[in-house]
Design a protein around this nucleic acid. Sequence first.
DNA 1: GACCAGGTCATCA
DNA 2: TGATGACATGGT
Length: 318
Amino acid sequence: MSLAPPEGKSSTATELRKSTHFSSGHDARDPIIFEIESEEPLNLDITLSSGQTFRWEKEDSDWWRGFIKGNRVFIRQTKTNNPSFRLECKTSPTIEKSTLIEEYFNLNKNYKNIYSFFEKDPILKAATMKYRGLRLLSQEPWEMLISFILSSASNIPRIKGNIQRLCEEFGEQKFDVFGAYHSFPTSKALASASVNDFKKLGFGFRASYVWDTSLKVAEDRGYFSKLATLSYSEARQELCKLPGVGEKVADCVLLFGLDRLESFPVDTWIKKIVERCYFSGKAIPAKKLAEFGREKFGKYAGVAQQYLFEYARGMEIE
DNA sequence: GACCAGGTCATCA
DNA sequence: TGATGACATGGT
């Protein structure tokens, strides 16, 4: 399978060859193997543990278990770039796997151009060297909205736990060849719950935000389709009308759920590293830092943010 | 048993 | 505008 590069995207013509076993008797439990020839790297481990997504878990056997567009997916990387990388994927047999994987991991986005743009900046250059292959994922905006409302003054292990309990309690139970699982709950399902239900899940002060926002989105059919037609700043303004959504959460929804790479979410990690590396340690209000990021990194601000986020966290751990 | 966490919101100067 | 504190509670 050869994918022609859409306009403005990869010029390296990402080749996506599938070696499938779709002959009669194929079982979804057998992996589909994607051999992808590309100069543009993917590092699955870094990408799936990077804090932009909260429902992937790595199993003992190197397989990641998670969800793409509501489908349970198992995926692992058995070969890193040089010159190609290989992904193995297991999911429901009815799914068009190559499209699913390609879109979710943005395999056609031109990271080569992005990396060469980052070369000019010493901090990003270092971050790129360390986390090469980290990619932004295309996720569901509704899931991003609730996930990042829950991220307020929290930490990643806790956010993951909150989301898992939310799915188990209010998500639809589904079955595939691997067994039962719960989908991410709809806005309608959450609007029918109560603030107290969410407090029982350990949401704390975020409980009312989740409920109020679910109610508003459930009442507004096509909320995200409408959002997608707006400009970045209009969409951001609209999102900020939702309870529990400020500029940071809005930027995360736009970046991770609506592919708006011009957004630059500023959290505690970004604040720390940007102040330290670009403002000599001087304290700067988050609003100004977001403007700075958008201006400095332009159409790649969101990618820059994700690399800086990882870089800042990595520095803390070392 | 502190301390802190991918913020938001209301209030005040 | 910009600074400050309350908001709840689990993870370390």
